[in-house]
Design a protein around this nucleic acid. Structure first.
Length: 882
DNA sequence: ATCTATGGCAAGCCGA
DNA sequence: TCGGCTTGCCAT
């Protein structure tokens, strides 16, 4: 149980200091007093009542440092007033770093004691996990964060060795005060107090599910459940989008220059308010298009007025959503406002190097959030690949941007209004669909990682996991090691990677048995790597630990040993998160007797955990991760390889044919129920890991290639893995023909159905071939679509075809940047390619396309016993002379 | 200032 | 012409 240290036990952090002198901040949750951008009549936005003392709680969304007050501040979202309120630190927390030198010695270092920001020294005890010993260290406390680090004269630059000196101050504050981001707090005597809130815990029988676990582990489980069972507020928010006049339509307006006028802005909020502000571009012009019942349109004669109206909106909402507002919309608004002479202090926007923030509310740039690879892959199963508002919204909402035929600057007012409004509309809806899935995901992830909303939505998984781990270090009084300390103590990886250039060996892929197989069971380990980390007590401090007595506790195939004396932090954290996901929330999400909205919530929780867990092993092997530990990463994969090879051996030993396997799965040919359950039980008892049935294929087809197969579920749904026909970059006509074939194959019930299916497939390919020869496909369907992963000039070693095409585009005056998807066709001219914008149907190289058709279908024909050439009734020579 | 990992395939580039 | 290498996309 959690009784040893409950959430309340951490609150005295605040109470203990209640006797200290009151700060200059008033004793209440206060609203920002900067109401300088006064309400404009153009927008009919309801303004909530001033918060009263009877609405005394708010959800911690963000923490920042206020330089004037020299204090950390917290932005809280009050569900009652639906506004942001501010709380400033009353605990006198100060920035610091640590040194191994004793106070007595440091006192004579004048470079530090004379530093204008120096405050005092404190002798502290810290647990050094790498050495498994307590250490006496000196806390060097400063008056402000910049005195610790961030300038050339900072204290950390004057020390030969500084510890915990590169942690942002507001994060340090969060860790030390155990602030639970995303959780509700109320105020008592100007102290922040965590608000009690456990919803629906009666449905969770924690004791039963996690009965066998050790006390330490149970503590983690209980803490996670407390975070997840607390209600999530629906946050009042508005999406904002602007349009800028542009004289040259292919040029993107420069947000740093902000030379051109802002001609429209749209605001769509979570209460259904939809407004568009439009600039009248000719003197004395009258508004030409009226609003409607659902859209309020306001016309402005002067751009300054329009900008003031936007600034008011930015200051009004607790959360402002944009799509690429960091780099464009908010940056443009700021610079344009400056250019028009609006005083800096009247602009509630804070420009930073890579992000743009708001002084009052919280700016969430959804582009940054959806750009996150883990979010793309694990939360949204790679449903979108191009990182544009149009692509993301089409994939997730089934609705995209309005297609434009004319440049923005030539649109009529009504067209401009519709276009601009749609952008804000879909931006808001990206956070609203599926019962606010994205907002919930963000809030849950904030609770797990203790990160402010702005940082969480902008930073990647390594920073999420770093925050999670750091906070745990501080909670347990562990010294946070420097990257270099870990590397010195643990060394590099010892296993040789299969792929040249990689640092260590990864997962195993079992050679597939080619052919069509009926009744295939796919078994896999539920979150293999997190399970390995949990079961084998893996963490940077437990791998190759300092105890001689642990050296006998080795792991398969590696010389590494694992600590037997102490539980590893990563093992406890990742292991408990894994268990909470697999044993609790995945089950709850499936429980039919629960209310649909509750099931949905539980599903978001398990999805959020999935996102985090899937990245948890990867960061351990990433040099950029602050707790980078190569022996740990390779220990994880080595144990993973052991688990899967032993499983294959065991399956074969009990008479099951293993058709294929990849990293954490085995594909079994027609196993009996009894065989499966024997294997599952063996895994549980011998490996300590849960092997489960992932899916059953009516039939699956393999070629001789790894990571290339398709399987048809019992309900006819088809999985296609790795086959070219499914890849994003191949021409649409091929994708279409391939999907037609898949449809035919999904109908196959038994071996005898294949004869009919083969006839249909032949027909599909034949039609495709004839259309190609007759050049009957539109150019668009023939384009290859390849992403430019870096700027053109960075392609040094080779010049791939999409780079060739992009270069032609650039010469033709198009702006080309990294991340763009280049559409090009294969041509018979010397270069071999042309960007689609510059090509006509006459340019296409028919022979090349027939080759693509062949290679794409050949992957499947291999397994079905079909011949491409034979289908077309032509010889190789024919294709050659075409 | 920012960045999860390795294994595997198709296609094309490019130097020997 | 061959084979190693680069690139992009995908599997897990």
């Amino acid at each position: 149980m959690l009784k040893a240290r409950t959430l309340e036990d951490f609150i005295p952090n605040y109470e203990r200091r209640a006797t200290e002198p009151p700060s200059q901040t008033p004793n209440s949750l206060q609203r920002s007093t900067r109401a300088r951008v006064k309400q404009n009549t153009s927008a009919n936005l309801e303004r909530a009542e001033e918060p009263t003392l009877h609405a005394p709680y708010g959800y911690a969304l963000s923490v920042f440092y206020n330089g004037d007050q020299r204090k950390a501040g917290v932005k809280l979202y009050q569900p009652d007033s639906r506004q942001i309120s501010f709380w400033y630190d009353t605990t006198n927390h100060l920035p610091y770093c640590l040194s191994t030198l004793p106070v007595s010695q440091l006192e004579s270092v004048r470079e530090i004691t004379d530093h204008p920001g120096f405050d005092h020294f404190e002798s502290v005890q810290k647990f050094d996990a790498l050495a498994d010993t307590m250490r006496t260290m000196t806390k060097i406390v400063a008056k402000d964060p910049r005195s610790i680090g961030g300038s050339v004269n900072s204290i950390r630059e004057r020390l030969s060795e500084a510890w915990e000196a590169r942690i942002r101050y507001y994060n340090c504050f969060i860790y030390d005060r155990d602030l639970q981001m995303g959780m509700p707090y109320h105020l008592r005597d100007n102290q922040l107090m965590l608000r009690e809130c456990l919803d629906h815990t009666d449905q969770i029988n924690v004791h039963e599910i996690f009965d066998e676990e050790a006390v330490e582990f149970r503590g983690y489980i209980d803490r996670w459940i407390q975070l997840f069972q607390c209600p999530l507020p629906s946050i009042r928010r508005a999406a904002v989008d602007i349009e800028v006049y542009s004289a040259v339509s292919t040029r993107f307006p420069d947000p740093n220059e902000a030379r051109d006028r802002i001609i429209a802005a749209s605001i769509v909020d979570s209460d259904g308010i939809r407004c568009v502000y439009v600039l009248l571009r000719k003197e004395e012009e009258q508004s030409t298009v009226a609003g409607s019942e659902t859209v309020q349109v306001t016309y402005f004669q002067r751009e300054e007025e329009l900008i003031h109206a936007i600034l008011q909106i930015l200051d009004e909402y607790p959360v402002i959503l944009t799509f690429n507002g960091d780099d464009f919309d908010l940056r443009y608004i700021y610079n344009r406002a400056i250019r028009l002479g609006i005083p800096r202090q009247n602009i509630p926007i804070i420009l930073q190097e890579r992000s743009t923030r708001l002084s009052h509310g919280i700016h969430v740039d959804l582009y940054r959030f959806f750009f996150n690879r883990s979010i793309q892959i694990y939360a949204f199963s790679q449903k979108y690949s191009a990182l544009t508002l149009d692509s993301v919204s089409n994939a997730l909402l089934g609705e995209g941007k309005i297609k434009l035929e004319t440049p923005i600057s030539d649109l009529s007012y009504s067209e401009l209004i519709a276009y601009c409004l749609q952008d804000a509309e879909v931006t808001l809806r990206l956070t609203a669909f599926d019962d606010e899935l994205v907002m919930k995901l963000i809030q849950i992830m904030m609770r797990i990682t203790s990160m402010p909303m702005e940082d969480l939505t902008r930073q990647g998984v390594s920073s999420w996991i770093r925050n999670l781990m750091y906070k745990e270090h501080r909670r347990l009084n562990y010294l946070i090691p420097n990257s270099q300390n870990i590397l010195e103590a643990k060394g590099e990886a010892t296993s040789a990677a299969t792929i040249k250039g990689k640092k260590f060996k990864g997962g195993i892929v079992v050679d597939p048995k080619p052919g069509v197989h009926f009744n295939v069971a796919v078994l896999d380990f539920a979150s293999l790597y997190p399970s390995v980390i949990k079961v084998y007590n893996l963490s940077y401090e437990t791998v190759l630990c300092s105890h001689d007595t642990c050296r006998s506790n080795t792991i398969p195939t590696l010389p590494h040993w694992i600590c037997k004396e102490r539980k590893g932090l990563a093992s406890l954290i990742i292991g408990s998160l894994r268990d909470v996901r697999v044993k609790l929330y995945k089950q709850l999400a499936k429980k039919q007797n629960l209310d649909a909205s509750l099931r949905n919530l539980y599903n978001v929780i398990q999805l959020t955990l999935k996102v985090l867990l899937n990245a948890s092993y990867g960061v351990m092997g990433a040099e950029s991760f602050n707790l980078y530990c190569p022996p740990l990463a390779e220990a994880v994969t080595a144990i993973g390889r052991y688990a899967i090879t032993e499983t294959v051996k065991k399956a074969e030993a009990i008479g099951i044919e293993v058709l294929y396997g990849d990293t954490d799965s085995v594909f079994l040919k027609a196993p009996t129920t009894q065989q499966i359950s024997e294997l599952v039980q063996w895994s549980e008892s011998q490996l300590g890991m849960e092997l489960e049935i992932d899916k059953i294929y009516r039939y699956a087809a393999f070629s001789h290639l790894k990571k290339n197969y398709f399987g048809v579920h019992t309900d006819g749904k088809v999985d296609i893995k790795g086959l070219t026909g499914k890849k994003r970059h191949i021409p649409a006509f091929l994708q279409k023909a391939f999907m037609d074939m898949v449809e035919v194959l999904s109908q196959v019930q038994s071996p005898k159905d294949f004869e009919k299916a083969k006839v249909d497939v032949k027909e599909i390919v034949k039609t495709c071939y004839q259309n190609l020869k007759k050049k009957q496909y539109p150019l668009n369907d023939l384009a290859l679509k390849v992403m430019l992963s870096k700027p053109l000039h960075r392609y040094i070693k080779t010049t791939p075809q999409h780079v060739k095409a992009a270069t032609l585009l650039e010469k033709a005056g198009y702006e080309i940047k990294a991340g763009d998807i280049i559409f090009f066709i294969k041509t018979s001219n010397e270069l071999g390619v042309k960007p689609i914008q510059l090509a006509t149907i006459r340019d296409i190289d028919t022979k090349k396309y027939i080759e693509y058709l062949e290679s794409t279908f050949e992957q499947v024909f291999d397994t079905l016993g079909l011949e491409f050439q034979e289908i077309l009734g032509i010889s190789k020579l024919d294709t050659f002379f075409m």
